[in-house]
Computed example of a mutant assay.
Amino acid sequence: MFARAAAATTAALLGACALVLPSAPASAQAPATPQAAHHGRPLVVAHRGASAYAPENTLAAIDKARDMGFRWVENDVQRTKDGELVIMHDDNLKRTTNVEEVFPDRAPWKVADFTAAEIARLDAGSWFSPKYAGERVPTLRQYMRRVSRNHQSLVFEFKKPELYPGIEYQGLRVLRETGWLDKSHVRNRLVIQSFSANSVRTVHAVRPDVKTGFLGTPPVADLPAYARFSDQINSTHTSISADYVSAIHALRGPHGKPLEIFTWTVNDAPNAVRAAKFGVDGIITNAPDVVRRALRGF
């Protein structure tokens, strides 16, 4: 049902986003690369917040990352039945909420089948630990306010955008309205990524100043095509090698800077060291403290 509504509103959302397109060429407003990525030690990004220690994609998880001293966090964004953007990894609510108890007759409990108000009723913390009972699924606006309050930076992921037509325009609109598309944030504090090349292309077309990442491990021969619209190739750590990382760094992304690679999800010291020796620019991890300790020698 919402797909039809999204189709009807996409043009309006595109118009709203077009108002914030940069007036200067993209090359003149190239996003700054995080400094940690270029003096030997990869940037450490807390995956879904510090999700080894607090329930993933909740405000508690990003607060935990803050308390542990981590500036960069990563999230996942999906859309509700009534068009609200929420922070959730899976496209259904079963694994990380008590939706089966609250709405027993609503299987298969897809995010897109529930309103924002219904999702706000769910407990998103008890599955992880009684300590986090009552933790809620944040909306994107709530999440962005907390990231701002924590003085954190964000790897923002559009999760399964093929399920939510127009979600890129909506996400960019929320980022603009919460102050995240000004020059300072765009240059230093934001990366937008997706497993969907089309989604990354859309973000780059609408906001060519924003730093983007494609999630996957494309063949080396295909990397130049991705470098036209993506600043990063963000690959699972089990799929990369030193040669692959070198092939990425040999190319320049859409802002004229060397293409980067953030690798995921690295939760142990040996694999953190292995990835760092390959020369990756960032490591996305559920256990950022483990990775930080492992990289102290770099």
Rank of each mutant, 00 (worst) to 15 (best):
F195Q: 04
T139R: 11
P42L: 09
A107D: 14
Q152D: 03
Q78T: 03
K160V: 07
V137W: 00
E135D: 13
A52K: 04
A287P: 04
G15I: 11
F195M: 07
A8W: 15
T212H: 05
Y132K: 03
T178W: 02
T139G: 11
V203A: 05
A5W: 09
G256V: 05
R4E: 13
F158Y: 15
R141G: 10
I119T: 01
A112S: 14
V77G: 04
V291C: 03
A205P: 05
A28T: 04
Q193L: 09
D76P: 03
E74W: 01
K257N: 11
F278C: 04
L190Q: 01
A247L: 03
A30C: 12
N286Q: 13
N57K: 03
F214K: 00
S241L: 12
F156I: 06
L85P: 03
P104D: 11
P161Y: 15
N286P: 00
K94N: 05
H237P: 08
R149I: 06
D76Y: 09
S199V: 09
D268S: 10
A197Q: 11
A247N: 07
A133L: 08
L181E: 03
V203N: 02
A3C: 11
W127L: 01
D105R: 14
A107R: 15
P254M: 05
Y226C: 00
S126T: 12
N57C: 02
G69N: 03
D76H: 13
W180T: 05
A54I: 01
I261S: 13
T96Q: 09
G256C: 08
V45W: 01
R121M: 13
P138N: 14
D123M: 08
S241M: 14
E177L: 14
S148I: 02
R274I: 08
D123T: 02
S235W: 00
F214P: 07
N234E: 15
P34K: 04
K81A: 15
A205D: 14
L181N: 11
L163T: 10
V200G: 01
T33F: 12
S23P: 06
S194A: 06
M144Y: 02
A32I: 11
A287F: 05
S241E: 07
W72P: 03
L21M: 09
G253P: 03
S51Y: 02
Y244G: 06
V273E: 14
I62L: 13
S241W: 12
K183P: 04
V186L: 05
F2G: 12
V77Y: 01
D243M: 13
T263G: 07
A227S: 02
A60E: 01
R293Y: 07
H38G: 14
G166V: 11
T236K: 09
L163R: 12
T115K: 04
G213Y: 02
A11P: 05
V203Y: 06
T212I: 00
L259A: 02
T80V: 05
L215F: 05
K94W: 07
N267Y: 15
R228S: 10
N150Q: 12
P218M: 10
Q170S: 11
S239N: 09
K131L: 11
N57V: 00
L251H: 04
S239F: 08
D105G: 10
D82P: 12
V45L: 10
E260M: 14
L122W: 00
Y164W: 12
N57P: 10
F70D: 02
A28G: 03
W264N: 00
V155H: 09
A197S: 15
A26R: 10
Y169H: 14
P165V: 02
